[in-house]
Design a protein around this nucleic acid. Structure first.
Lengths: 197, 197, 197, 197
DNA sequence: CATGAATGAGATTTCATTCAT
DNA sequence: CATGAATGAAATCTCATTCAT
């Protein structure tokens, strides 16, 4: 059904992915139509199905792509950084910047995908887990080095991810067009040191 | 068109609200059908429209109802508690318990609502803001009393809400049926004191 | 199914008929709802079904009632009138006045009833034929007395009915609030003597 | 939403229009379903919406199409005719023939359209006015040339239109399959010279 | 007799997906 | 490879009708 691989290099796939990101971001998964994605991407409607098995597959692919992108950026930048605290701070900053670069991507991530076919659902989970994994290992490292408390790393990772996502989403909704850097510092500080003085 | 008020007390409204919660939780807003909600609620399809103006209105009503419920519980319990830290800790605990009592409600909250009609969208935002407001004022109080750092209260509130929601969601997805108490303590500690030792 | 007879005298039937006339006139057969008719009539929705077998039955009854009313008025007034020309002129005038008294009744008459059940359809046809019959006999009389040409009476009757209806309808649509008497004279003259000088 | 233009020539539009004419004629606007129109036209249900914005748009388009057709035929034939009387007579004949060629179209014209959306309603009115306009100008010409009495042209036009429509409708209902030519002459004579000897 | 809450058949419309060109 | 006209499944919502009170 999905023959999204064995196709010649022509750049169309990327075009569609970009169009999809835009449209999904603006209208959400259900609000978007394949036709509009095709239009924005500048290809025919049928072409979308040449590169992606279904609308859902397209959506998941966008998420995968973006999340992988973020994951890679973070992992790369993390190599030149020492100390779990610094690493975590950097991760959060990059994450935050990422959310503000591709503005409305948060919406995409928070989209209602309940009822995805198993396989697609699996892929989303994996993509997300992939990125969360980065946070997790930083946390684990921090715990090992005595920098962080002995918490459940995964839970901590999700807590951080949630904090970033919700704040980013809130900023979006309230049209805070250029979220200031202080915001991030506060967020970083919140994650590292909590609210108490 | 929506005459969701002036109808005799018969419990049907509550029945529908409960059914809707179940179905929306399992299938999300778009995955759910009014027909199924009606079935689960044990009423006719038309009856749903007797109490709610539209599927969207029903959805928003579910969110409002639940969020208000949580808000009230928290506010009440907060009155017998001294100290911003204690208050925040309690809020988080109650919030957490709430998410686990009406299990899959997180999903509903995280649903993709892009494209709701303005008025309904407004209602959702308000309901959410209402609950967030409770957190906000606790934080403000804490800042005033010198218990908390001088952060942007709203941002902090969203960060906390996000942390709870994502962890709850993760637990759900991973089928951790009875989220242990340690989890909450860790979450509370994360919010109050952060990750660092 | 239709037990519109054996019910005590309580005036409700008339109330409903009046309400129905109003609502059907304003919204047409399909645009009207039984609920609104009941409201306007000041009775419960169920009560309508106590006096009329169905929405369609109600509609047909309104038409019957009104047409019979017109028919009777015309027949009565015709008795004191001599000469087919004078009789026809009077018929047209009364018809016209009738249409303007119960203003929008033309709409009701012109309503789309395609697909009525046989029995109801029959009743409408009969009611209409009843009134048309009056015109017909006047025309027949005129032909017999040498006042009118030897035309097919029924055709002539329908032509006249059509002329009146369409002009009345046009007046309605164009919001000519108080159709002047000259209008009728012109219409009468048109029917009697045609357009030519 | 309605992209009833920019689609390749494939005859489908005409097919649908024809199917719609048939179905609307038999069942009226409300009695007809888009599904049946599609079936009769031999296309898929969705295809109807490819060519027409809505059921109402389809209906109005049928009316427009047919009325324009009639209007054009009449206008063309009128050019080779001298004298307002002759012109009017010809108009009536053509109108009559038209009604009998596309048999049940009268029903469509007489359909209950109460509650059409404004824009569509406007279109129907315009289409009708277009054709009525032809009659009007013939009448005006006749008045100017002293052939016709000094009546209100529009009223006269509607009276004539009404006469033709009702007679045609009656013929239809009574299943007078092949309305004889004498009928038309009588109708023409009625319009020109009235009923009186 | 009167009522109106409850019902569900049925209609319009959208849109992901296919396939002939 | 690319396209977009065609399709029909599916979902929301309306409203005539019933029936328990």
């Amino acid at each position: 059904m999905a023959n999204n691989v064995d196709i010649q290099e022509s750049g169309k796939r990327e075009l569609i992915l970009e169009g999809a990101l835009k449209v999904f971001s603006q209208k959400g998964f259900h609000g978007a139509t394949v036709e509009e994605v095709a239009e924005v991407a500048g290809v025919g409607k049928g072409t979308v199905y040449l590169y992606f098995g279904s609308k859902t597959d397209l959506f998941v692919s966008v998420v995968e792509e973006k999340l992988k992108e973020l994951q890679e950026v973070v992992m790369e930048r993390l190599q030149n950084t020492e100390g779990a605290c610094a690493k975590l701070a950097l991760s959060i900053k990059l994450h935050w910047e990422f959310f503000n670069r591709s503005r409305e991507f948060v919406k995409v991530i928070l989209s209602d995908l309940s009822g995805l076919e198993k396989e697609l659902d699996e892929r989303t989970r994996e993509a997300r887990a992939g990125f969360i994994g980065v946070l997790e290992s930083v946390i684990e490292e921090g715990i090992g080095h005595g920098e962080f408390k002995d918490v459940e790393p995964r839970m901590a990772a999700y807590a951080i991810e949630g904090a970033i996502s919700f704040v980013a989403f809130e900023n979006l909704v309230n049209e805070v067009s250029t979220p200031s850097i202080p915001d991030v510092s506060q967020l970083v500080d919140f994650c590292l040191n909590g609210l108490c003085c």
